[in-house]
């Protein structure tokens, strides 16, 4: 590690490592955040969920959206529609999208996340599970 030689260098290091704790800082106030949850079970990953998740991370960074948290879940059960992504706006019910590729991801971000306008590809909630 080269020594930090000025306050500016310290600040740029801080900006570079910020993401180490960013998720935790946002997580403390997760109720006020937009949560993008990518299903990352074997089926999801095989269908490209990891790419989708990384792409979302890139988009969020480019758009400087500070109120968005990207995280993952396991299998949501919609194996036929992988990669699946669940989007939760603050105070709203979660919405699940199927077949989310890069193009779809961009659309979800632009419309749903930025202006709350839902887009095609929503997997309807057909039933509640028995324990709910």
């Amino acid at each position: 590690m080269p020594k930090i030689m000025s306050l500016d260098e310290l600040k740029s290091l801080r900006d570079n490592v910020k993401n180490k704790v960013d998720l935790r800082e946002k997580g403390e106030n997760v109720d006020e955040m937009v949560v993008i949850r990518v299903a990352m079970a074997t089926c999801g990953i095989a269908s490209g969920a990891r790419d989708t998740m990384n792409f979302f991370a890139e988009l969020v960074r480019e758009n400087e959206l500070n109120n968005v948290v990207i995280t993952q879940s396991g299998c949501m059960g919609y194996c036929y529609a992988e990669p699946t992504v669940e989007v939760t706006l603050p105070g709203k019910e979660p919405v699940v999208y199927g077949h989310v590729n890069k193009e779809k991801a961009k659309e979800i971000l632009e419309k749903h996340i930025k202006s709350g306008e839902m887009v095609d590809g929503i997997i309807p909630v057909a039933h509640k599970s028995l324990d709910e």
Partner: peptide, 21 residues
């Protein structure tokens, strides 16, 4: 909140900025 053994996590939480200031 942070990993105490990781200086970068402390820096990410504005660590050592007060010293700079």
């Amino acid at each position: 909140f942070i990993d105490p053994d990781n200086i970068e996590e402390y820096i990410a939480r504005d660590g050592y900025s007060a010293l700079g200031q």
